[in-house]
Every structure is written in C-alpha cells, then in structure tokens.
Amino acid sequence: MKRALLIALAAVGLMAAEPPPAPDRPLPDAAQEARAQALFDGIRCVVCQHEAIADSPAGIAADMRRLVREEIAAGRTDAQVREDLVRRYGDFVLFKPPVRAGTWLLWFGPLAALAAVGIGLFALSRRRRDETPALSADEEARLADILASEADRRDPDAKRSDD
C-alpha cells in the first residue's frame, strides 16, 4: 500500500514538472543568426533574472529565443525586436534598460545612496566634539602619585614601559 502511494505521488510530481523546451533551431542565414545571438546576450531571462536568454535553460528563455529568431526572420530591426520584448515584459527584460523617468531609480539609485552615505559620514566627522577640560594642578599631582606608586600596579612583574 505504501509503495503504491509513493509511486502515485512520484507520478503526480513528474506530471507537474515543466516539460523540457524544444531544441533551438538556428536561422538558416548566418548573418541573421549572428544578430539573434547578439540580441540574446542583452536580454534577461524573466525566470532566472540573472542570466541572459542565451545561457538560460528555462522554457520561457527558449520561447523568447524562438520569438527573437522569428522577428529577425520577418525582417524587423534589432531596435524593433527589443521594443516588442519591452512591450511584452517591461524594461526589466533588458540588461541595459533605457534611461527615462520610470528607470531613474534603477540607474541613479545606487549613486544617490552612495552620495547620501558620503554626506552622512562627512557631517558626522565635522560634528564638534566636547573638549575634555584640562586637569587641574591638584588632579595632575594625584595622577603623578598614582603612576609613581608601585603598590597600585596591576601586575607586579610589569615594567614601567608596559604601562
């Protein structure tokens, strides 16, 4: 009974897995395939997010490669292919998104954060610290007595240079 249950669960798990993507079919024209390969390196896989579609094993990446090849075969320019992908998936799909109002935080956010930290550190270093008042003559005499007495030393084996 347990074995049948385990087999059934394994079968359900295998059916739920994503089917492997269809193998890539390069374009017959070498120049068009070179354009497609160049575009693949600049387009982010929407599943992996850190890989280009050229390197991603995800099924959606295979679909995106197929789409790019179809559009190149249809005679579209590289800019038109990128625009179509941005229309479908947003600016995130490009490794180098365009600079516009919607992507300012993406482009300039790290620089603004770095500048804010730098300004904060500069302001912190310029802040005035309260100066410690100098010792009075009586306090200096007491300090000299403490330092001179051998009875107050923490380590009797210590030399004067260890203080």
Rank of each mutant, 00 (worst) to 15 (best):
A16L: 15
E18A: 10
P21R: 09
P21S: 10
P21I: 06
P23D: 12
P23I: 08
D24Y: 09
D24S: 07
D24P: 10
R25L: 10
R25K: 06
P26L: 12
P26H: 13
L27I: 11
P28D: 14
D29K: 03
A30E: 15
A31D: 11
Q32K: 12
L39M: 10
L39V: 00
L39T: 01
F40S: 06
F40Q: 11
G42I: 09
I43P: 02
C45Y: 01
C45W: 06
V46M: 15
V46P: 13
V47N: 14
C48D: 15
E51P: 00
E51A: 14
E51K: 13
A52H: 07
A52Q: 03
I53Q: 11
D55F: 10
D55L: 11
A58E: 15
A58T: 07
A58P: 02
G59V: 03
I60V: 14
M64P: 00
R65D: 03
R66K: 12
R66G: 05
R66V: 02
R66D: 10
L67A: 15
L67I: 02
V68A: 09
V68G: 05
R69I: 00
E70R: 08
E70K: 04
E71P: 00
I72M: 04
I72L: 15
A73I: 00
A74V: 01
D78F: 03
D78L: 00
A79F: 04
A79S: 10
Q80T: 00
R82T: 12
E83F: 02
E83D: 14
E83K: 04
E83A: 15
L85C: 06
V86H: 11
V86E: 13
R87S: 14
G90S: 11
F92G: 09
F92A: 15
V93Y: 13
V93T: 15
L94P: 06
F95R: 11
F95I: 04
F95Y: 13
K96S: 07
K96P: 00
P97N: 09
P97V: 11
V99F: 00
G102H: 03
T103R: 05
T103V: 06
W104K: 09
W104C: 07
W104M: 14
L106A: 07
W107H: 15
W107K: 04
F108G: 06
P110R: 10
L111D: 05
L111R: 09
A112D: 07
A113Q: 11
A113K: 06
A113S: 14
A113W: 08
L114C: 15
L114M: 12
A115M: 11
V117E: 05
F122G: 04
A123V: 03
L124I: 02
R126V: 01
R126Y: 01
R126N: 03
R129W: 00
R129P: 00
R129Q: 06
E131G: 09
T132P: 01
P133L: 14
P133Q: 14
A134Y: 05
A134I: 02
A137L: 14
E139A: 15
A141K: 08
L143V: 09
L143Y: 12
L143K: 11
A144K: 03
D145Q: 12
D145K: 03
L147N: 03
L147D: 02
L147P: 00
A148P: 03
A148V: 01
A148R: 06
S149C: 14
A151K: 02
A151C: 01
R153C: 09
R154H: 03
D155E: 05
P156F: 07
P156Y: 02
